[in-house]
Amino acid sequence: MSDRHIQFQTLSDLYDDVLPADEREAVRRHLQSCEACALEYRRLGDTLKLCREYAGLSLPLDGLNDRTMSKIRSARTRRLVLRSLPAMAASVLVIVGVGLFSTGTVFVRDRATVAGSRLSYSDSERVIDIIRKHNATISQVTGEYVEGTVPVSSFNDLKKSMGFRRVAYMMVDESMPDENVHWGDAIEEVGHDTGQPVRDWAPLTGTGASRQYVRFRVFR
């Protein structure tokens, strides 16, 4: 080591303290006896000291927080509105459809059978009204159930307002596409019509802080 000058990469490694212990000691001994290498090491140190000084400058970033948060809020509002449009359209269509069905405007071959398995018009309206009052969006309405999504914080109140209905639900991610929602084992069904008010609501299943919404189906 003492015969040859130290390569710059070794000096750089020494500066970052990433040399193996034995090599580190050998390089340090060399620096004590070789003026040229010691000078090179000092220059490296001076260079990096200037870099740190430059990095420590606090440049004026006036309004960066406000402008960024304002854009984030706008984008979020826009996304929420866009997300609710199909649900609102579906609600209107279903209300009209159920209305036509209940007034007999739509011909159904086996009306008694079909009607027996469906939510009645007035019942559908009631369910939809309750859902809307709880900050929920409706994504699907069929003869058997009304499906929607609601923030976790509003779900317990929504369930209590549902009264004697069967409600299946699961926790979902806001951005989870419908095809990824599986109504399998994750479903708990609560609120069977036993003739008694439902008192013990089952705890929500699903884990992860990102699951902040509840997808639910209110059955007949």
Binding site: A55, L64, M69, A209, Q212
Partner: peptide, 22 residues
């Protein structure tokens, strides 16, 4: 933030803005 408190993101901006800008 993921739990719905979007405003908490300002803390991330505050913490990283200088380094990011540099």
């Amino acid at each position: 933030v993921l739990g719905g408190d979007v405003e908490a993101f300002t803390q991330i901006i505050d913490k990283y803005k200088d380094k990011a800008f540099n």
